[in-house]
Each structure stands twice: as C-alpha cells, then as structure tokens.
Amino acid sequence: MDFQGALRYGLFEKHAVPFFIIDLPTWNFDVHINIFKVSDREARDSWLNAEGNIINLYLVDATTNILHGMRNISVSKPVSEEIRDILEAQLSTNEKDTEVEQKIGQVQSSLSTDAMINSGKMFQV
C-alpha cells in the first residue's frame, strides 16, 4: 500500500458528523471528526474560523509503527468550509462528545466507506 498515484477525496455527512474520505486506486478509508475532542474552546474556535485547507496524510504500519509514506493534499475551499459548517452544527446539536461518538458508531455500523463514496461528494486531487 502506498500514497502514490491518483487520489480522490470526499465528504460524507450524517447526523452533523463529517466523514472525510480518501480514495486511492487500490484502497480507501474514511475519517470522522468529533469537534468536541478539541477540549480547549479557544483552540476549537480558532480552528473553526481558520482559512487553512491542507491535510497531511501519513501511511504508518500499525504493527511496526514504521512510516511508509507521507502526502499532503489541498482540499478545495468550499469543501473545507463545508467541513467547518458541519462541525459548527455538531456543536449546536450535541452537548458532549459521547453523543457524537454514539452517532459515529451508528454510521460506521450501517455504512461502508464505499457506500459513503457512492452517496457523498468526491473530488480529484
């Protein structure tokens, strides 16, 4: 497995939880975001109002902890703004991180990454 070659990224949202999707030619994965995990309110507010759109990807062997690859991608500004908007909705519709974690579990148990790709928005890097 590696990060070389064509790469698509995408966004899937359910229950005010953004799932960021990486789709490579031979494999894919999704990452959920729970904004409540950023416990420092000032840091959380700063991140939600930031203009940044770069995401760093690291390919690490979970058994050996050896880093096999790194790649950074630039996410389009509308997608990065949509992620932040979803997270602001997450803050206003939930009271604590455990509520969000419960919703994440529901989505993960009912949808595969492939299903998220098929119903989400995908973009070519």
Rank of each mutant, 00 (worst) to 15 (best):
L24S: 01
P78W: 13
W27I: 00
D30E: 12
E13Q: 08
Y58C: 02
S39I: 15
A16R: 10
A6C: 08
T26C: 07
S92V: 12
E95P: 00
N94S: 10
I35M: 11
G120C: 03
T93L: 11
F12S: 04
Q102K: 15
I104R: 02
P18E: 07
I21W: 03
K103L: 12
I86F: 06
N28T: 03
I55Q: 05
V107P: 02
L67T: 08
V31E: 11
Q90M: 06
F3D: 05
S110T: 11
Q108H: 10
A43F: 08
A62W: 14
H15N: 10
T63C: 08
A6T: 13
L24Y: 10
S80P: 01
E51M: 12
V38M: 14
N94I: 01
I21R: 00
Q106R: 13
L48T: 01
W47H: 00
I33R: 08
N49D: 14
E88M: 13
V125L: 15
S76M: 09
M116Q: 07
A43S: 11
S76H: 08
F36S: 00
D61G: 01
D114S: 13
E95H: 14
F12C: 04
L87R: 02
Q4K: 14
D61H: 09
G120M: 03
A115K: 12
M122Q: 06
S110G: 00
D114K: 15
D2G: 15
V31K: 14
L57P: 01
W27D: 02
K121L: 11
I117G: 02
I55G: 00
N49R: 11
P78V: 11
M70W: 07
I33K: 10
R71Y: 01
S110M: 08
H68W: 14
M122C: 03
M122I: 12
T98M: 11
Q90C: 08
Q106I: 14
N94H: 15
F29C: 13
S46K: 15
V125A: 12
S92D: 14
S80D: 03
V107M: 08
V60T: 11
A16L: 06
L24E: 04
L59G: 09
V125W: 12
T64H: 04
L7V: 09
I86Y: 05
V125P: 00
S119F: 05
K37W: 12
